[in-house]
Design a protein around this nucleic acid. Structure first.
Lengths: 346, 346
DNA sequence: TTGTACGCGTTATCAT
DNA sequence: ATGATAACGCGTACAA
């Protein structure tokens, strides 16, 4: 409805329906909610008119009344990333069936942004939070606050160990080990590990797998082979080109996240080195087109859609059934898959 | 606050602050909103306590009262797509500065899903909608309804011409022409055009550019060269492989969307054909790593981030300033960029 | 089976 | 400068 050009919300509401039907608002409300107290004929009349006028309950009135929003916040470190996109697809697939809505936020790997976003969510705006922390997240007061306020929170992939709630990850340690072992089997002697940040869980776990695999082998190892990378792509390309130019360059690289593998491709171009001839690389990645790169990239691919769906299913169970206990403090591990391609040699 | 294990929303609210301060709720409200009617000392007292107790206004009470949600819906056809991810990044960058939140929905290219999503949004849940329509969207009653209800709606990329509102696109016709002309210059004689759907605006516009370029040349042309593709990747690979196997295969391909270019890469593998030797391809695409493919892909790249930011800026202007007129019925064109790479020959 | 009254938390209007 | 009251739209305890 318009009043002097301005949209006003005087839509059909319960009061309006009640008037039209000669009933009281409460009767209409109960009829719409299929209450056992209301006679079938009345229900029919109400539902018919509601449908005819395309009545939609006001979500804010309802949220205010019920103290819940039917909305979930999803917080990710970056949007331009197949893994996170797939996870959100998985979450939406489930939550949508329950009539839940998704507020999606990107921290752009920035803790301050992460804190700001979370501060918006502590007022009941969302019924729960599903998140993967930023690579900068070291201090976790803001996450602790969420938990203390009783807002259900689930972590996935980049989890926060310290918060006693449910976390979904993949077998990162194991795959860090396997990835490294695969390179060793291929004959690599000097294997570097590219790390986004030591702060994040997946970085630490994958690194641990790498370190153990190196230890288990008879290969030499130097701490300087663990390369701490930056946020900016150009910086990383420079960094990686730097050590690829050297005479003592690595002949194997484990990239702990996709963007570092990509930076390595650019660095390889710059230094005119070829995979797998000059060095071999394996990367954690959910790129659909890893197989179309030059050379195609051997990847450890995470079950992203499944992670999203499992997060959401757990949450829906907790939120839609009465008297559910708090989310259990446990880590659920879903297996990743190694897909061999040209970058580690056929 | 917890009551028998259950989280209850009895957070600090205005009433609580008022009690603690020995003031009335209305005074507190006014003080928090920096009303001129309140004395400075009172304001200070109120703000101090509010800060100390970390008071956060209840968004639903406010929305109910103000008849606005400070929330924007973003509806896209698919999430696993760099273009749409970048657009959303752009939207968020602006809206976040104004304290707006983003509900993000994917239609998965399905009109029915699109209709369902929109029906959720007609009850005031969002103050505006920014969307790119699904490739199936032919009848537009649901979009018309949005407009009729007075909910501001902006289209980008895949627009709906018929709705009189502001639309943001790139110069699709021009680039369809240029892309085709580029192939012609490279000596292609038989150029196919891969189309996702004739229903969507970008498909039609890019096709029009292709057709005009073909017409302007002295090349022969057959209608069957415009290939209507499917949703499923495997189906498209089969379809494309099908005509690549033939003796009368094309020597040039214009892919109107990224996913069709990718299907073509797989089809090329299957048929053992090589670009640019056996055929050349150019594609509309925002893939960051188009340059790392084998061969690297010549692309027409859209200013996605900018599109998002411009959509959001227009919207914020309309929503945050009083008495703004309805969104103008006009199309704003931002230029795309052609990036030449190996797939069309150096 | 239906109606009345109230409160969720906020802000605006009207009083004082 | 501050307080009392009403209203946004909904659902429910209580009354009839």
């Amino acid at each position: 409805m318009f009043i002097n050009g301005k949209f006003t919300m005087s839509e059909v509401n319960i009061k309006y329906l009640a008037e039209k039907l000669g009933l009281s608002p409460s009767t209409v409300s109960r009829a719409l909610n299929d209450s056992y107290e209301i006679s079938q004929p009345t229900k029919d009349r109400v539902n018919q008119l509601a449908k005819a006028l395309n009545y939609q309950p006001n979500p804010f009135a309802r949220s205010l009344r019920e103290q819940k929003s039917k909305t979930i916040a999803v917080i990710i470190p970056e949007r331009i990333n197949n893994f996170f996109s797939q996870v959100i697809d998985g979450i939406e697939e489930i939550t949508q069936q329950y009539g839940y809505h998704l507020l999606v936020y990107s921290t752009h790997e920035n803790v301050e942004t992460e804190k700001r976003i979370i501060s918006y969510l502590l007022n009941g705006r969302v019924d729960a939070i599903v998140m993967s922390v930023s690579s900068q997240t070291k201090y976790i007061d803001h996450l602790q606050t969420v938990f203390n306020k009783g807002v259900p929170i689930i972590f996935f992939d980049r989890i926060c160990q310290e918060i006693p709630t449910t976390k979904f990850i993949t077998n990162d340690y194991e795959n860090g080990y396997k990835a490294t072992f695969h390179l060793i089997e291929k004959g690599c002697k000097k294997i570097y590990f590219l790390l986004l940040s030591k702060e994040i869980s997946i970085g630490r776990e994958r690194l641990r797998g790498y370190l153990d695999a190196m230890k288990a082998s008879s290969l030499s190892f130097d701490e300087s082979w663990v390369i701490q990378c930056a946020q900016k792509e150009e910086e990383n390309i420079r960094l990686i080109s730097g050590f690829l130019y050297g005479m003592d360059r690595p002949d194997g690289i484990v990239a702990s996240v996709e963007k570092l593998a990509i930076a390595t491709y650019y660095a390889a171009r710059e230094t005119k080195l070829q995979m797998p001839k000059d060095f071999r690389m394996i990367s954690f990645s959910n790129m659909r087109i890893a197989g179309l790169l030059q050379p195609s990239l051997t990847t450890i691919s995470q079950p992203a859609l499944k992670i999203g769906m499992e997060c959401a299913e757990l949450l829906m169970k907790k939120l839609t059934k009465p008297n559910q206990p708090a989310l259990e403090d446990r880590i659920i591990v879903l297996p990743s898959q190694i897909i061999l391609r040209e970058s580690t040699g056929k």
